[in-house]
Design a protein around this nucleic acid. Structure first.
Lengths: 409, 409
DNA sequence: TCTACTTTTTTAAAATTTAACGAAGTATTA
DNA sequence: TAATACTTCGTTAAATTTTAAAAAAGTAGA
């Protein structure tokens, strides 16, 4: 791996994240001079990885030539897991789905075969078209649990007897594999393609079956010493006696999450509360939440009440985040964010009560506009980030055969 | 200001923080090649700013020449303020006090003249020896309150009618001025010269009249979007009804701080609790705390009990930090850290109760070995960090006359 | 339509880095 | 203990990169 090849990857990475860039932009982003940047761009065009897009709009002078990736020269396999389902999709350099995403049932809890099953699904998914599979740069996987990114281990699920998750899958599939926590990947998606773009300090709340957190610090995803940073769901925030799955009491998760919503709806309706929604025996938690979100949007008092209470509690947690991190933006994202603006008022209310005004005034609460694909997009972004990542303070050698670009085949 | 001058400052900065370095080390740290580094070093020696220190120990090959700063060629004026007292000291490049530190009474609360008075004290302090004063690179000031470092404003104290604190003092004293929050500077001192050296992710707790926090993220001080990050004292942690100075209730500060210790001692003794310590009407809070620390070290049950209870509550706050930041180290520092090991057991106890084990196991609690001068040293370090700071993404011009080195006089 | 001012891209000069080599020292082995 | 192999340090010369100057391509206002 020569130095120029590394720079070419940097260029591809920048083009992936920005969609299109001029040579001047690229030169600044990769920190190299214009003559070199243009030389490398021409080589990449020769190789068929980059294309000229035509001239962009003038900003007061000569119009710049814009460059972009050849969208279908390289692919990424994006995987989004939760405790029950695993979704897989093949994505191109434009973040388009090359093949439709497929969902498999793959329970993670108490499942010793989970990793093997994941491998089976991935293999089967790729067998459909070996030619396309050969173009895959890497596999990005988002999963719940305590993920140690560096070691490639998940301490909660997908246990391996020896070695790392990455090593196991790389051996089976012959492609670099990168894993991370689901909330971190949602934050990464928001940082690179969503509403947290160009944000230096921001917190992305993943409202889901728990309350996850992805932290953006200095414009990069922050993972902490072991990759466990952002355990928002289990901070001791309440003096209730509700037992949490983690073994403690008083966790934020015991009072606020989509599961709590589902429970409260069931209980409320059984107690005879008046509402426009009806639930059946066969409704999953997912179904119930979707009904609640829709009803709340219609103005259903009962549903709005439940969401408000949960939102207030999330807001109390956010007030701690604001005190500690002084972020520019708090972004409500994840599955629950599809409920929309209902969250904003109760969260702001909690901030008014629990934040020092100067602090809460300094940060804005926003609602994500990404849909449920955020984790997929984050998984793809993880691959692109990691593949061009240059470990600092190390010698300039590169693990042989670890980070192929399509041009090397 | 030429490019080479900037590089020379980088070299001086590195030598300041490391005391001594070889040319190879320096070359790596400033990111320039050896030929250039050596050329610049020779120029710095010519100018009298750097000296050769002789050959260092071999690490298996030819012995390196070591370089160090001329300790007394340049000085820094370090200022540490709290709500009542302001200490000033002139420090050299070895972090030695050139003149003894002096303490002035300067109450910050409800004092419109505070900034002017600070300027008076600084002027008087420097008038003692104009020759030495002429060598000052900059003035570093640590202060309590909400400090916006970029704007040079303190929203709590030292209000200025127009412009920044920095601008006011720079105009009066003719030397660059840098301000920051006291807890941030303690963290900076620990990061550069104390027990947080080479730590990538660490939290420095400033146990004082409040509970301050300086955050180390990615090996740098983290300040947040407006510089307010680390407002640990006012996170809503308790469901008490105690009114806090900030206007809210339930803040950590209402249950844990050196002021609380002082109050509890007074109350306990007045209730007839048995203890070896005695307090008089004239004892300040400072005096009382010192007595408590000494008595606890002797084994006084009453004092140990008070410290344990406070320590447990600080620990509960730390458990939130650990969940969110997954730090490598939590360092107990500041005035209260002089009490020593008494803190460790109750803090660990709180972590056992409020942390997910995998998280608390991943971070170690340490006790600072820096004494009360930490804030001074941090203030000096702030000057050295800031003076060589190169704003990213900006043109390479430098505000004229803003950042003098002695060589330029 | 002309002039003044931008920004992009190319070309040539200046500066920097890389790499090779000699110097200085350590560790291992006969 | 002397010789060989292997470090790391510091210097010099070749190769690369950056900088700066100039040309190309536009915009905007008079």
């Amino acid at each position: 791996m020569t130095k120029n090849d590394l720079l070419k990857r940097q260029i591809c990475k920048q083009l992936y994240f920005a969609q299109q860039l001029s040579s001047t932009d690229l030169s600044e982003k990769i920190g190299k001079s214009l003559p070199i940047t243009i030389k490398l761009l021409n080589e990449l065009i020769q190789e068929g990885q980059v294309k000229e897009l035509g001239y962009g709009a003038s900003t007061g002078g000569r119009r710049p030539m814009l460059y972009a990736l050849e969208a279908d020269r390289s692919y990424i396999l994006a995987v989004a897991m939760d405790q029950l389902y695993t979704r897989i999709a093949l994505m191109n350099m434009n973040n388009d789905f090359v093949w439709p995403a497929e969902q498999y049932t793959l329970p993670l809890q108490h499942n010793d075969q989970a990793l093997q099953q994941l491998g089976d699904h991935l293999e089967k998914y790729l067998e459909k078209d070996p030619a396309a599979a050969a173009r895959i740069l890497g596999i990005g996987i988002g999963m719940p649990g305590f993920v140690d990114v560096k070691k490639g281990v998940n301490y909660s699920f997908l246990k391996t007897e020896t070695g790392s998750i990455n090593a196991y899958l790389e051996k089976r599939l012959g492609v670099p594999v990168f894993i991370d926590n689901d909330s971190s990947l949602i934050a990464l998606a928001e940082l690179r393609f969503g509403m947290a773009q160009n944000i230096k300090d921001g917190m992305v709340i993943n409202i889901s079956w728990g309350i996850g957190l992805g932290m953006i610090v200095n414009g990069e995803l922050f993972r902490g010493h072991n990759g466990f940073a952002g355990e928002f769901s289990h901070i001791p925030l309440f003096s209730n006696n509700k037992m949490c799955a983690c073994g403690k009491t008083g966790c934020l998760e015991t009072e606020a999450s989509l599961l709590v919503i589902s429970d409260q709806v069931k209980q409320g309706l059984s107690e005879g509360k008046v509402s426009s929604i009806k639930i059946t025996q066969t409704d999953t938690n997912e179904d119930i939440c979707e009904k609640v979100f829709k009803a709340a949007a219609r103005g259903d008092r009962f549903c709005i009440g439940i969401l408000s209470e949960i939102g207030y509690k999330i807001g109390k947690g956010i007030s701690i985040l604001i005190h500690l991190m002084n972020p520019e933006v708090i972004l409500l994202s994840g599955r629950g964010a599809t409920a929309g603006k209902v969250w904003l008022a109760p969260v702001e209310q909690a901030l008014n009560e629990h934040c020092i005004p100067r602090l809460s005034f300094s940060t804005t609460i926003k609602l994500s506009n990404m849909d449920l694909d955020a984790e997929m997009i984050g998984a793809a972004a993880l691959v692109m980030e990691s593949i061009v990542y240059i470990p600092t303070r190390e010698k300039k050698t590169w693990p042989a055969g670890k980070l192929p670009l399509v041009s090397e085949k």
